[in-house]
């Protein structure tokens, strides 16, 4: 554990808290992509299968929180707040993301075992799971401030993993190339968003695309 990873995980927790807070206080899931949320649940379920055979207090607790909160968000979006979700603006074709991640997972896992292939699938899928959400923001041309805070916190989480990987490489020669490549791609996908978030939202203006 190091400060970058801990900060990254905290940002991940914060992002989930912001999302659930936004939905329960406004009693609405408008502006949130159901498709991205469904992809995240798929990411956590396929990655954290090892809950069944490994236990570490910190990791196992976090894994359960991520799966549980993700399922709860989907429950809110399909149950109580379903009328506030507009599928007509959530139109990203996720089958290409799932298909691409599946192909990469089958071709280049660390080992050809079901658990390893699913782990690799989850790493690639996570790197692109935000795309339906970003696409939705782009289509509407603006986003609520709280939604932008959510997207920022979620992006910051994986961005902070990059210095964590550099630190681990330098201190213990830890090296997980799949995670690192996918994590860098994930952070690059956020970079446009980060820029607009920094230049607009943090200076007190509304998030609107130029």
């Amino acid at each position: 554990m190091n400060i970058f990873r801990l900060a990254g995980d905290l940002f991940h927790l914060i992002s989930i808290f912001i999302l659930i807070h936004k939905m329960t206080t406004s009693k609405s899931c408008s502006g949130i992509s159901f498709k991205s949320q469904a992809l995240y649940l798929l990411v956590y379920v396929t990655r954290y299968l090892d809950l069944f055979w490994t236990f570490a207090l910190y990791n196992s607790t976090m894994k359960i929180i991520f799966i549980g909160s993700s399922a709860y968000v989907l429950h809110l979006m399909t149950g109580p707040f379903k009328p506030t979700h507009d599928p007509n603006i959530d139109t990203f074709k996720v089958r290409y993301l799932i298909g691409g991640a599946a192909i990469l997972a089958l071709l280049f896992p660390y080992k050809w075992t079901p658990a390893e292939v699913l782990w690799t699938f989850s790493i690639w899928l996570e790197s692109v799971a935000i795309l339906p959400q970003l696409f939705m923001v782009q289509r509407t041309g603006a986003a609520e401030t709280i939604t932008t805070h959510y997207i920022f916190a979620l992006g910051a989480y994986r961005a902070l993993y990059i210095p964590n990987w550099i630190y681990r490489y330098l201190t213990s020669t830890f090296w997980d190339p799949l995670s690192i490549i996918a994590g860098v791609i994930q952070t690059v996908l956020y970079s446009d968003f980060f820029y607009i978030y920094y230049t607009k939202v943090l200076q007190g203006r509304k998030f609107e695309l130029p």
């Binding site: 990873r5 995980d9 991940h12 090892d50 570490a56 990791n59 976090m62 894994k63 991520f66 660390y110 080992k111 390893e116 782990w119 993993y161 964590n164 490489y169 020669t173 830890f174 090296w175 997980d176 190339p177 799949l178 995670s179």
Partner: peptide, 10 residues
């Protein structure tokens, strides 16, 4: 450095 797919991260 050999790959260490320890999966000890989240």
């Amino acid at each position: 450095v050999t790959p260490v797919p320890g999966h000890d991260e989240l």
